[in-house]
Design a binder for these strands. Structure first.
Lengths: 221, 221, 221, 221
DNA sequence: GATGAATGAGGCTTCATTCAT
DNA sequence: CATGAATGAAGCCTCATTCAT
């Protein structure tokens, strides 16, 4: 067998390579479902069809497992968003709207929203994880949004505002929506329609940012 | 009997009336600091200077202790807010601003913000507590805000918007600010200036709600 | 007020005398309902409308309380039975039947059966209580039954049998009935009709003891 | 590697297949010795030479542990008895006698009698366990004895009696003997000779059941 | 590499008993 | 006499982590 034929690895060996991904998928599911502290490694292993000990072959401990989940699933989405924004050529209002809706589509609507929720919920008890997440995810996403706002201000679309705080104002409803979905809504309490909510929010924020006020194009009642 | 005996320390002190409040104070501190699941009742007892068993003289179990904390500390603030809103005679814009700032002052700035954070963080794992909190706190506070928005719409100050979603949009930044304070900020990561943030938010939201657009009175950069 | 008028004690003082009896009544109820170990002194106190501490004014500890219950409620019934048997003038078969049925009426059907059950159930874990109960109750009741059997043998009604073991054979069904009532029957499992059961038993035992066999007077099917 | 290393004691020993049985044996010992409620799982573990947590690898909780003890040790004996009775060809009097004596030999004389005692003693406080035991053990053993009585009545050996109550009358002395052994006798109070007692009982019951009365063959005094 | 048995610290809750008032 | 707040040991159960095989 020629050494070059890397694609015909025997089955068990390909499986070997797949292991970490299977484990991370299982871990994601459970972290999202139950949170960090309440997720038992037994369950992660069981869910991945592996023994508990095997988990420790691939990840030093619970914390490292979680970090790996974040790296595997969130960081890639961020990179994609960075590219998108850099290349966008329309108005900043459109860009912002697309960004928010895309964010919801790629993260909010998927399991990944659970990670955002989890970090807001538990970073206080796990400072190391918090630091890691802030560096890898939050600061990068902040930069992204601030860049969009500055673009809008620079070309006169948006009023000149304090971008670093506006960033958080803009981000807040999406975060709250994610948290709601994984807290009260998951107990059957007060479900929220994400599209309606986001439209309402985008309408308000668009009006709020507008340099030259214009009537909203659609009735939102 | 010699006067010296007076120094004998009793094995415990009778504090019948004060005890529940002391315990609730200790419980509040720890729930806020560590969350619901991670708070150990031993620690609550120790923090209140009593033994583990004493806690159970006053509260049936962890859940009831928590509920009592909420009743003692949050429900009263809500009642106050309801009265305030009912009696307010100024513009709705002013009312909304006062409400938000008062909310921050009474809750956001105090330990109580930790309860809001805790509930968003853990209600998914404790549905009974979630139901209780939603009934006692959330639904009442929702009603409050919706009433304010309707007041503004009715008298022509605000655009006609979907109040039930707008409610959440308005609430979101305050909630996120509370959560941030008890998550990343508590690890020394990216502190946020609440006044600046809230001003930025109020400026945006005021603009966003306005029926007849007016230029913002102050530059916020 | 003349010192002789003992019957007109002020109310609170008569109540003082009643206390121990009220406590013993409450204790009886709970010991019977839940057994010795599972009875909480809190509940006894509450059931008697008294504080926990008061219990300790009258009884040194749980064990002494229990002993007092036995003395108050069982020992007197025994004395009554002893008298009855001494004075009975009919046949021994009648005597035995009356004794068994009377035993069921005075003890089996009442709460007191619970004490018998309790002792069989828990004496292994409380040897001191067991010793006390054996001395005060069991050995005396054994003597009673043996005397009845010997009377029957002496006058030719009963076959000559080993009275000390027959004693236990005779006693066994009544004890089992008492235990059943307080164990499986109390969970709704297989209720037993005491009259039918006792009749069946008396029929069998009468036949079994008879010196000159005679057909049973009633069909028991 | 030097041979000396062989002496290193492992922190634990792998005993996958043996463990459950060792645990059940330890549990049986302690349940019998102390009863259900008074048996601490720590002690069971210690008695089996494992840590507390290990118990929970094999049994979900105390109740399941107990059920497993019953299944392992009692249910098998019952099956054996069922077969024996089905195949027996002698007289019903002999069958009954053999059954009773065999019951004593297989259960009464062994630790297993402690389970019977325990259930009579504690089923009132543990209804779920009671239900389980009644289904798995009591109802089956009742059926067995009733079948024997009906056999004797059918072929004219026994008088026609109420079999369902006679069943309990017959069973009572054996149960009482078992209970006695684990209650008063275990405190050194009034030991009972099982053989003498059972003979006395069988003599009485045989006479009591007989269709055509016959003189007892032996003097039992 | 993979397994999964074993550990043991730690969390919630109960209850007989004590003792200052 | 009465009270009832307080104690603290003890019991059940969980779970991250280790390690012989």
């Amino acid at each position: 067998m020629p050494a070059l034929d890397l694609k015909t690895k025997p089955r068990w060996e390909r499986r070997k390579d797949a292991r970490p991904h299977e484990l991370l998928a299982a871990a994601l599911d459970l972290f999202v479902q139950r949170g960090y502290a309440a997720t038992r490694l037994d369950d992660v292993a069981a869910c991945a069809g592996v023994s508990k000990g095997t988990l420790y072959l691939y990840f030093e401990n619970k914390e490292e497992l979680f970090k790996a989940v974040v790296r595997e699933h969130l960081v890639s989405v961020l990179a994609e968003a960075e590219t998108y924004i850099e290349q966008f050529t329309g108005t900043s209002t459109e860009l912002l709207r697309n960004f928010i809706l895309g964010w919801w589509e790629r993260i909010g609507e998927t399991k990944l929203s659970g990670i955002t929720k989890l970090m807001m919920a538990e970073s206080g008890n796990f400072p190391d994880v918090a630091r890691f997440y802030h560096e890898e995810v939050i600061s990068r996403s902040n930069a992204l949004i601030i860049r969009m706002l500055e673009r809008g201000i620079r070309n006169g679309e948006f009023r000149p505002i304090d971008t670093s705080h506006a960033n958080l104002v803009i981000v807040a409803p999406v975060i709250v929506l994610m948290m709601w979905k994984h807290s009260f809504a998951s107990c059957g309490l007060q479900a929220i329609s994400a599209p309606d909510y986001l439209n309402c929010f985008l309408d308000l924020i668009t009006h709020g940012l507008q340099a030259t006020p214009a009537p909203s194009s659609t009735s939102l009642v």
